[in-house]
């Protein structure tokens, strides 16, 4: 085991704890956007794809690297655009607490 590996492993463990702690309480209406948003974040794989294609020596590596960049780019742009479209739907909402304000009165008075 090299020092470099140990360093990466340290980052891995710490990032795991951060990922687990950072999203403690998520309201169920945000489950889908959160999934979609984190889907976009792992699109960072495109950076790895670029490095692979950028250091390709043989035709086979170039071809595989090319595929990886296309797939990674799809992941990034698709992920962010879909998430943004979902979240756009929430923007007109007032931040009123949704709990128990007498819906009866509100809606009855709508006439």
């Amino acid at each position: 085991m090299t020092n470099g590996l140990l360093e990466l492993f340290t980052i891995f463990v710490l990032a795991g704890f951060v990922g687990y702690e950072v999203i403690s309480k998520v309201p169920s209406i945000l489950h889908t956007p959160l999934m979609s948003g984190s889907n976009a974040i792992h699109g960072v794989v495109v950076v790895g794809s670029m490095i692979v294609l950028g250091s390709a020596h043989t035709g086979a590596e170039e071809a595989l690297g090319f595929i990886a960049v296309v797939l990674g780019t799809l992941n990034v742009v698709g992920g962010f655009v879909v998430t943004d479209r979902m979240l756009q739907m929430f923007k007109s909402r007032q931040p009123t607490p949704k709990g128990g304000q007498g819906a009866k009165g509100d809606e009855g008075g709508g006439s």
Binding site: L8, I11, G19, V22, H31, V47
Partner: peptide, 20 residues
């Protein structure tokens, strides 16, 4: 690839995704 940013972002999503 010895890439910190891939490890951090991937692990973040891996861990938070499990919780989600």
């Amino acid at each position: 690839l010895d890439s910190n940013v891939l490890v951090v972002a991937g692990t973040l999503v891996g861990a938070s995704g499990m919780l989600l």
